[in-house]
């Protein structure tokens, strides 16, 4: 049996503020799905450091409409390329704290190779094509020495300054996506 025009639908993509349950998502991929023996999931989380900075959280902005359209197109391409069953992509937006889940990609297939490859492919292209932008909250420490003439006492204070900065896109992500062509 050959596959006929594999398509992806909006049901397979969710852009949401609220957290998701890995167990619930796996259950949905497996429910009434006796044909697929493999379930591959990827979960991305907020790290506490980036480029040597101490990160305290981040805010995710996106382009509503284009985000969904882009991810649906990536899923459709994955379905043309591999023999996969069900796909689910979740991406969170808004304010997120350290350790929180940001992104989920789940793929099922009859045998593991297709689900492994398709999952990585979807994640690699999501990173370089889907219009999301991360703004990090980072803490920088400044050592400042204050002296007062009257008391002749030096007080060294360790000041923590929290700033927000937009992340720069990484060449390594673009290079990784290009390995699929």
């Amino acid at each position: 049996m050959s596959k006929i025009n594999p398509t992806a639908t909006s049901n397979e993509v969710s852009i949401q503020q609220q957290d998701f349950s890995l167990a619930d998502e796996v259950a949905l991929l497996e429910q009434d799905n006796a044909i697929d023996g493999a379930v591959v999931t990827f979960t991305g989380r907020v790290r506490n450091q980036n480029n040597g900075n101490h990160v305290t959280g981040l805010t995710l902005e996106h382009y509503p409409g284009m985000t969904e359209k882009t991810i649906i197109a990536i899923i459709a391409t994955a379905k043309e390329r591999w023999n996969i069953g069900r796909v689910k992509v979740i991406h969170r937006i808004g304010q997120l704290n350290i350790g929180e889940q940001i992104v989920f990609v789940g793929v099922t297939s009859k045998h593991r190779q297709d689900a492994f490859a398709a999952n990585e492919f979807i994640m690699d292209f999501l990173k370089v094509k889907a219009p999301f932008w991360k703004k990090e909250r980072v803490v920088t420490r400044t050592d400042s020495s204050n002296s007062t003439h009257e008391t002749k006492i030096n007080t060294k204070t360790d000041t923590k300054i929290e700033t927000e900065q937009w992340l720069d896109a990484k060449d390594s992500d673009n290079n990784k996506a290009q390995t699929w062509s």
Binding site: Y63, M66, K127, P131, F132, W166
Partner: peptide, 10 residues
């Protein structure tokens, strides 16, 4: 029409 910086999601 939209203009934006390189994307940084995932």
């Amino acid at each position: 029409v939209a203009f934006f910086p390189p994307v940084t999601g995932g």
